[in-house]
Each structure stands twice: as C-alpha cells, then as structure tokens.
Amino acid sequence: MDSVRALTLIVTMAFLVLAMPAEVALGHGVELSVAPHESIEVNAAYEAGEPMAGAQVAVFAPGEPAEPWLRGSVDEEGRFFFVPDSDRPGTWEVQVRQAGHGGIVRIEVEPAGVVEVTGGGLTPLQKALMAACVLWGSIGTALYFKRRAV
C-alpha cells in the first residue's frame, strides 16, 4: 500500500552546456548564442521506484505561492528540468501530482546556486546523495568557469 501512497521527489543538478561555440553565425542572418546554465532536475517516483511518468508539475517562485511560475510535466522516466530565475533567490517550490498522489519539494536557491533541498519524502540517504550532487554541481561550476578563464 505504501508504494502507492508515498512518492519521492529527488532534486539534482544538471548542467546544460551545449557543445557549440558561444556564438554561431548562419547563412541567412540567424545568430544563435549559447550560455551554460545550471538546471534543477526533479525526479518523481513512487516509493517502489516506478516513475510518475506524465505527472503534472507546478513550479512556484519565491514570494509567489499562489500562482505557478512554470507548469509542465515529467518525462517517461519521471524527470523534470527547469532553470530557476537567478534574480529571484529564495525558496522555490515544486509540486508534482498524478492520479490522486502528489508531493512537494522545496529548493533554496541563492545566486551561487542551490543550497538546500527539503521535502519530497526524502530519506537521509537520499538527502546525503542530494547534498553530494549539489556539492558536485558547485565544483563543476567552478571548474567550468576556471576552464573558460584559461
């Protein structure tokens, strides 16, 4: 029964760094520019591990708890990616729900990146894993920009 009732929302970091030059000029006057961003990945699954494929997602920005800043749905593997507005530090909330089951996870975002994640039915092991992911994200960011500076 608990496999149905409980679900787990796991938040990790992902880096959307596309393997393209910073600017690309194409033949008909189109210019594409690419910038690396740190994204947040939410993994939504029932406790038994089954992904909540297709579940609805609502993201709430700090200070606006009533209206979603972003709506979407998780993919077949239960994943949802978003890039929070770096100009809006504070607690970002992500609700995931599907067919009578839902959960919420809170992500503390500061200009330097994610600093804390709470909620989502996380076990201590998952929290430790998440902390490692956030740490990895910070190191990754530092290494990326260090490489860029060389």
């Binding site: 029964m1 149905v4 409980a6 729900r97 599907q98 009578g100 089951h101 839902g102 959960g103 919420i104």
Partner: peptide
C-alpha cells in the same frame, strides 16, 4: 488487511497523503 490499510490512507489534503 488491504481494507484496513485503505481506511488509514483514505484521508488526504488534495493529493497530498
């Protein structure tokens, strides 16, 4: 046993268990 468990999980807050 299934019914007992259902009774325990009957109440929600919206879709939050």
């Amino acid at each position: 046993a299934r019914l007992e468990d259902i009774l325990v999980h009957f109440g929600h807050i919206g879709e939050n268990h």
